[in-house]
Write a protein that binds this DNA or RNA. Structure first.
Lengths: 105, 105
DNA sequence: TGAGTATATGCATATATGGCCAAATATGCA
DNA sequence: TGCATATTTGGCCATATATGCATATACTCA
């Protein structure tokens, strides 16, 4: 288990940041069950379509999803399903913590 | 594979945000090789001691590390080693992407 | 108690992020 | 071409995050 190169850290941070956002976690969770278009995502996260588009762009730049245009829709799908492991880890952390105190809200 | 509860999403996002930061990734990587005190972390990340303390507090609030005072040092250690999986996932994403184009810098 | 060291916290400032609206692009279809 | 629909991008504002300095707090030791 070597120390990680600082240049890599920067890239890794960008990828993690792409996922570390409430709306983007919702998007990842949704895309895990199949591709969908920007308008679906907008409705899903209850935001403007432009906002949905930007979130998807961030995920795309992070390499988490990719996009394919078909007709005048653009369909996004999950390309890095390993990010789902983040959620499992988060769940484990919460469980651990549940035995302490903390804001569950 | 059920959809995730929106209330959980919020908690998960907080945990992921705790790790999604360059200096905090460096810290996690370091703590993975053993506990250390705030002053060591400050030097490690090349920041003010107060900044190191705050980063550690964020990780602690996220349930990623915990702290123990011994004498007048406070030692932090990793309590959620599953976050190391984030790094593996990120590395995989970068590898995938390396075959495309992108800013490697 | 008082001096010295290690951490944590309040405050101010700089930067980043998230969101909407409006306008620009990209397609499809008549 | 011209109009309608879907997506992306620019501009702007509000809020959140990061950081350092100064200061408060915690602890050790004499």
């Amino acid at each position: 288990m070597e120390s990680i190169d600082r240049a890599r850290i920067k890239q890794h941070a960008r990828i993690l940041k792409a996922v570390a956002s409430e709306p983007r976690l919702v998007i990842v969770d949704r895309l895990n069950r199949g591709e969908c278009c920007v308008c679906d995502i907008a409705e899903l996260i209850g935001a403007d379509q432009s906002t949905a588009s930007r979130h998807l762009a961030i995920l795309r730049d992070g390499g988490i999803v990719d996009a394919e245009r078909r007709g005048n829709h653009v369909y996004y799908r999950l390309t890095a399903p390993c990010v789902l492991g983040f959620l499992e880890c988060a769940a484990r952390v919460l469980e651990e913590r549940g035995r302490g105190s903390d804001d569950e809200a």
